[in-house]
């Protein structure tokens, strides 16, 4: 466990609470992609299956896994009940099946082992790397975003970006290297690069998030 990893995990945790706070404070889920949230729930459910047999291995990991699954399920529940009037299926239209299909194909082609758990784990890693696309697509269609939504996206993007120095650290200092997670993590971070740029040049300077 190193500083980058801890900061990455905390950033991930913070992003979920920013999202819940956004819905509470604006009493709306406008601008949030339900598709992306459902993809994340799929990611956590397929990756954290090991919670049943590694519960005692690390209390930190197990409790984070539970929090990610439950808070994302709660977010989806809120979006589909309390805040459903703000859902806009006309804007949230990214072809999610391609993402699930592509991740499934990569998982079957490149698992570490051909066991149900390892294939599902690989699936979750590839799916996570592209799960943000429906959300970014929605942002592009509307052309602007509430500031709190951009903080959510920044925290979520920062999480995987911080995992990259964590992987480098572990590679050099511990001889640990996880090629699937690293390649997928780099792709995931690259998908955010445009967003990071606009967040840095506009939101951090007090301006509204608007696409040029």
């Amino acid at each position: 466990m190193n500083l980058f990893r801890i900061l990455g995990d905390l950033s991930h945790l913070v992003s979920i609470f920013i999202l819940l706070q956004k819905m509470r404070s604006t009493r709306s889920c406008a601008g949030i992609s339900l598709r992306t949230q459902i993809l994340y729930l799929m990611v956590y459910c397929t990756r954290y299956l090991d919670i049943f047999w590694t519960f005692n291995a690390s209390l930190y990991n197990s409790s984070m896994k539970l929090v990610f699954i439950l808070s994302t399920a709660y977010t989806i529940y809120l979006m589909r009940t309390v805040y459903k009037t703000a859902l806009d299926p006309q804007i949230d239209t990214f072809a999610t099946y391609y993402l699930v299909g592509g991740a499934g194909l990569l998982a079957v082609l490149f698992p570490y082992k051909y066991t149900v758990y390892e294939v599902l784990w690989s699936f979750s890693i590839w799916l996570e790397s592209v799960a943000i696309l429906p959300q970014l697509f929605m942002l592009q269609r509307t052309g602007e975003a509430e500031t709190i939504t951009t903080h959510y996206l920044f925290a979520l993007g920062a999480y995987r970006a911080l995992y990259i120095p964590n992987w480098l650290y572990r590679w050099f200092l511990e001889g640990h290297f996880d090629p699937i997670a690293t390649v997928a993590g780099i792709i995931q971070t690259l998908l955010y690069s445009d967003f990071f740029y606009i967040y840095y040049t506009k939101v951090l300077k007090g301006k509204k998030f608007e696409l040029p």
């Binding site: 090991d50 590694t54 291995a57 896994k65 995992y163 996880d178 090629p179």
Partner: peptide, 10 residues
């Protein structure tokens, strides 16, 4: 490359 039996990252 060492592949861990138990995944230790989230």
């Amino acid at each position: 490359i060492r592949i861990e039996e138990v995944k230790d990252e989230l």
